[in-house]
Design a protein around this nucleic acid. Structure first.
Lengths: 228, 228
DNA sequence: AAATAAATTTAGACAAAACTAAAAAATTGT
DNA sequence: ACAATTTTTTAGTTTTGTCTAAATTTATTT
């Protein structure tokens, strides 16, 4: 990430980030419409911007064929994501925000331009490897430990991981978790799954409990694996 | 500062801040040319922007008569200044920037929009009253303790204050300070001044020392006084 | 393999914030 | 007091990022 990257505008950074995220989902080329939806703009605006990014060789683009990031673009995306996730750690660890309140502020903070700032923030936070949602933080060079973040309902029996998030942050659901001694940061192991109804037995701090499929499909575990 | 202020753009905030600072210097109405110089734009651009700010009733403006902030505009200015100075404290106290490196980054951070963020940052920093340059930090309502920040050479004998900055940050000068046990944050009292050469005797942590006029005109003391 | 539908691009416009050049008002000097 | 100078404003462009409407290309059906 040694890219002293030539004057990216806020908007360009947002597009690059959107293209990065969309290409993660689908690995193929990213569609104009998909970007428009993500960015909440119109497809014609996307075409304009993509042309501009292409001229700066941040994306590979052929008319009607969709877009993908160039290596340069990928590094820009990772640099922005690094900033976003470091700020999220700051907001949660230092300022006591809860992990579901930080996204919008981090969307602003990620655009602050200063390499020294990010280096010092990283050190101040103790070089964290993941953000409060369990997503990995790329290092300065754009490398990161890819953590697999999956719903309990999607993981095989005997998987083990740290609970890092929920899909449904309704009051009722959070109360349920509290009552059952489930908290973010806890380590769980999947002991068994009933094929009949998809309910799952997991081991927690206080012993093993049975959770319904509905619950299992609302809890994310993070299984860390080195990669990339 | 309870102003849920209706969508200020970055540029508008910068203009309001510039007008505030210029009106502090001169208390009268602020000239178009002065704003243009401060903002590094052309006078015609200033006229355009000032009209816009006037329509939003953030400034009082009559053609050819200069500009002044409305009460609403003054509160916006103080809100931006509050953010700027809190971020400066964060950068120096928490991230170990030196006080002369923080301005540019704080210029960016001051535009981050989130009341919760600023409240929590303020608390995290221990509700500081002044920034690393000795300038006062307005509170949420826009009130602040006005601190007088002056060069030792400009202060009368028997003045007392905290050393908060230097004019000349050359290596030679900083070495001199170090050798003489003078550091930012120290409290000094001006014991005597020689009319002949302007040299000054001050009391420091390690006893009293004599400093030349050249040194005295490079060291800022902050004398706090409640006001505003 | 057409015909239809969907996705994408082009063309032309607009708002924000800047600019240049020229006009108008205010200030200054003699 | 009035000519010269300075300051400020107006008018007309430019750039960035957006939009709508129309045209074009690709994909899907039958």
């Amino acid at each position: 990430m040694l890219l002293y990257y030539f004057e990216m505008t806020l908007s360009e950074e947002d597009y690059i980030k959107a293209i990065y995220h969309l290409s993660q989902i689908d690995s193929k080329t990213v569609a104009t419409n998909a970007i428009a939806e993500q960015m909440k703009t119109k497809p014609s605006s996307v075409t304009d911007m993509v042309k501009k990014l292409s001229e700066k060789s941040l994306v590979k683009y052929k008319k009607y064929q969709g877009v993908s990031l160039s290596e340069k673009g990928r590094l820009v995306a990772l640099s922005v994501i690094r900033k976003h996730r470091l700020w999220e750690v700051f907001l949660v660890d230092k300022l006591n925000f809860s992990w579901d309140e930080v996204h919008e502020v981090a969307e602003q903070l990620e655009h602050i331009k200063s390499d020294a700032l990010i280096d010092k923030l990283d050190a101040y936070l103790g070089f964290p490897k993941v953000d409060p949602h369990g997503d990995p933080i790329p290092n300065k060079e754009g490398y990161f430990t890819k953590s697999v973040k999956k719903l309990i309902s999607e993981l095989p029996v005997l998987s083990e991981g740290v609970c890092v998030g929920v899909n449904d942050s309704s009051v009722a659901f959070l109360k349920f978790l509290d009552k059952n001694n489930i908290a973010l940061g806890d380590t769980f192991k999947i002991l068994d799954r009933e094929e009949f109804d998809g309910s799952v037995t997991i081991s927690t701090r206080v012993g093993s409990i049975r959770i319904s499929e509905q619950i299992a499909s609302n809890l994310f575990l993070e299984i860390v694996a080195d990669e990339e």
